[in-house]
């Protein structure tokens, strides 16, 4: 089992377990008492999950014993410490002694920004750096409220030219190329 979990399929399984744990915690913290601390509790749950996974998988690490220390030593120390402190944090949070979650701001715009950036990353290998970063800048400017085409087009064009001249020509950085250039 440890061998399976330490491989690529294990990563997928553990990654799938992560949102499942968070969803379960989210569902359990809907009560009035815990609702103001929901994000903090979710962070604690995520950290506990992480420390548990690291500690558990440390048993599957190859053991090349060198007088009382091995590759398992540090991960176990850190994951146990993280779990301990996180549990204390969770205890304080559940007792209402932690700061309340801040008011939600423009989360939709944050997520939209992250999605645009992730999409541009995905596109980098297909259409190349210049086109993908140019489109990203253009969409981000519009998404963040810039309404003057002359401004966002010149910013985009300026950045593409700048990155070509400075990073590609001057610093010889091999930027990802795609279908076009």
């Amino acid at each position: 089992m440890l061998v399976f979990l330490s491989g690529g399929s294990g990563l997928l399984l553990l990654a799938a377990g992560f949102p499942a744990v968070l969803l379960a915690v989210w569902a359990c913290t809907g009560r009035e008492r815990f609702a103001p601390f929901r994000v903090r509790i979710l962070i604690c749950a995520a950290l506990l999950y992480l420390s548990f996974v690291f500690f558990f998988l440390s048993f599957g690490l190859e053991e090349i014993e060198a007088v009382g220390s091995s590759a398992r030593t540090a991960p176990r120390l850190w994951s146990a410490g993280l779990a301990l402190f996180t549990l204390d944090q969770l205890r304080r949070t559940l007792q209402g002694r932690a700061p309340r979650d801040p008011e939600c701001g423009d989360i939709r715009r944050v997520l939209a920004t992250a999605a645009v950036v992730a999409f541009s990353l995905w596109g980098m290998d297909i259409v190349g750096y210049y086109l993908s970063s140019g489109i990203m800048l253009l969409v981000l400017c519009v998404l963040l409220g810039e309404r003057r085409p002359a401004v966002f087009l010149s910013l985009t064009g300026g950045w593409v030219l700048f990155s070509w001249a400075v990073f590609s020509r001057m610093l010889n950085l091999n930027l990802p190329s795609g279908l076009f250039f």
Binding site: F54, F85, D88
Partner: peptide, 30 residues
Amino acid sequence: LESFIAVLLGLLLNTIGLDPLSGVSRYTFD
């Protein structure tokens, strides 16, 4: 407490990769 947790998170994430002494791969998931 939050600072300690953050420090330990950093230390734990640093263990990903090849072990600096024995070369054993840790949490690399192939």
